Simulated assay, not measured.
Amino acid sequence: MNQFTIDLWKVLHSYYLGFVKLLPRLALAVVLFLLFLFIARQVRRWLLPKILRNSEDSLLTGFLGDMGYWIVLILGISVALGALGFDGAVTKILAGAGLSAFILGFALKDIGENFLAGILLAFKRPFHIGDLVETQGVKGRIIDMTLRETIIKTLDGKDVFVPNAGILNNPLYNYSVDDFLRLEFSVDLDNREDYKKAIPLIENALKETEGVLHESHQHEAVASVEETKSNALCMKVSFWIKSPEAEKESPTIKSRAIQNVLHALKQHGFSYAPQKAGSGDS
């Protein structure tokens, strides 16, 4: 029993001496880590206003600031471990982190994919906050974006959280890129009517409709024969509007345009079948 106590004391004493010998290095490592932690915070605090001067993108600014912070912090951890004499441990930690990332990459494939997609969208984004977009059957305005998902407020007030990978891998329709939106509807005239006379009447009625654009050749109101039926001549009518508030204005402008076109045709004696309105935003 006495021998066991002596051996235990020797082991504890050796650990104590080793700890005392390590104290200066430990103190230096703590000081170095705290120094790098301070520098990392200052780098992030310094980067944010610098980036904001050249970019109004809050997501990209925050991402770059966090990236600078973590790069400096990881460097500080490596230097602190080196001061403790754990140079080999740094290599093992980095190798272990790479292996862990490889394993977790399979386990959390969807999360990692959305995270990487968020980074790509942050650097080269096909939309901005407030844009009217449509993707994967969801149509609404962008209200926020994180590195994992994009939040879209639909036209009926729902908040939809769309994974970034889905946006990156699927078609995205942005109606706010140039602030123009095309609307369509159709009018069924009697098959015996002269469509050549009806076309200018329809186009003039559209030009006189409030909210319909007609100043530019690229955004002219157009009427054309879409198809003929046994007793009807189907006229396709399309026109352009400004789209900053498309979800509020387009139904009103479209209704006004239909009424004006039907009134003009009726005023000039044209006979038409009950009109078949259809939305064709593009």
Rank of each mutant, 00 (worst) to 15 (best):
F19P: 00
H128M: 11
N114P: 02
R53E: 15
S100R: 05
F36R: 08
L26G: 06
V138H: 01
G88S: 11
W70D: 06
L28D: 01
I39S: 04
R53S: 12
V72S: 03
K139W: 01
K92P: 00
K10M: 11
L73D: 02
P49S: 06
G62K: 03
E56Q: 11
G96V: 11
I71F: 06
G76T: 04
I74L: 15
G68E: 03
F63Y: 14
L99S: 07
A80Q: 07
R125V: 06
F106V: 08
L121W: 08
L94H: 08
G85C: 01
E134H: 00
I71H: 02
G118M: 02
V11Y: 13
P126A: 00
A95I: 11
D57P: 01
L37G: 12
K124A: 01
G140V: 09
W46L: 12
G130A: 09
L35Y: 06
L34P: 00
F86E: 14
F115H: 03
I71C: 00
G105S: 10
L81G: 03
L12W: 14
L23M: 08
L84V: 00
L121R: 12
V72I: 14
E149D: 11
L26T: 07
V20A: 10
T61Y: 02
G112V: 05
I143T: 13
I6E: 15
G62M: 03
A27K: 05
I71E: 01
G82Q: 10
I74G: 11
F36Q: 01
A27T: 09
L35H: 04
L84R: 02
K50Y: 12
Y16F: 13
L120I: 12
G98F: 09
P49T: 02
L60Y: 05
A117M: 05
S55A: 06
F63W: 06
Y15M: 15
L81K: 03
V43Y: 02
L81V: 00
E113W: 04
A107D: 08
A80V: 13
L81I: 04
W70N: 15
V20T: 02
T91V: 10
V72Q: 05
S78I: 10
L23F: 07
D57W: 02
T150H: 02
G98M: 12
H128L: 09
I77F: 14
A107C: 04
R44M: 15
L26I: 07
I119D: 08
T150N: 06
I77E: 11
K92R: 14
A117W: 01
F102K: 04
G18C: 06
L23T: 03
L12Y: 14
W9E: 13
L35W: 07
G65S: 14
L52R: 11
S78L: 03
G65N: 05
D66T: 04
L132Q: 09
G18P: 00
F4A: 11
I93V: 14
H13T: 04
L116E: 04
S100G: 14
Q42M: 08
Q42N: 13
R125E: 05
I103V: 15
D57G: 02
E134N: 06
L34A: 06
S58W: 04
D66M: 01
W46H: 12
T5Q: 11
T135P: 00
M145R: 09
A107K: 04
S55K: 03
G98D: 07
F106Y: 15
A97G: 15
I142G: 03
L108D: 13
L99K: 06
M145Y: 01
